[in-house]
Design a protein around this nucleic acid. Structure first.
Length: 130
DNA sequence: CCCTGATTCGC
DNA sequence: GCGAATCAGG
């Protein structure tokens, strides 16, 4: 074990990479097949100069956002620390009681609430109207 | 939200 | 050069 000082990408893996890539597999699939992250796959592919297939994104005029000082959304200065972008904030119980809490369920894409509560919020209030 | 890939930056 | 992080579009 001394003549082995290859980079992470050996001919073997490069072979699989190129082969799978040529087969039309996606970066994620190849990454899983080789046991590497998809970034590693696309990174290597890009570096090798292999023919990329899709370009869903177009080169924008934006000079890429500064990664370090990524400004966070300064909103909701409430005690909602566990606030995620997909957390349903549907009120559970009574806001004036101590057992008041939020749904916490994963919200639907583009919806402020989860599937169940989204239906409630966007209902025609017809059947709900009692 | 999921997925896709591209590009840039840090190590 | 490699990998992660980020951005961008469907």
């Amino acid at each position: 074990m001394s003549d082995n000082a290859p980079s992470v990408w050996t001919e073997e893996r490069l072979s699989d990479l190129t082969r799978l890539w040529g087969e039309g597999l996606s970066i994620t699939q190849i990454g899983l097949a080789l046991g590497v992250s998809r970034n590693a796959v696309v990174g290597k592919v890009h570096r090798m100069g292999l023919p990329k297939r899709q370009s869903p994104i177009v080169k924008s005029d934006k000079p890429r956002a500064p990664k370090a000082p990524i400004q966070r959304r300064r909103a909701v200065p409430l005690t909602l620390e566990q606030w995620d972008r997909n957390t349903c904030s549907w009120p559970i119980g009574d806001p004036k009681t101590d057992n008041f809490s939020f749904c916490g369920e994963t919200v639907e894409p583009g919806r402020p609430y989860c599937t169940a509560h989204c239906a409630k919020a966007y209902t025609t209030s017809r059947e709900n109207a009692a």
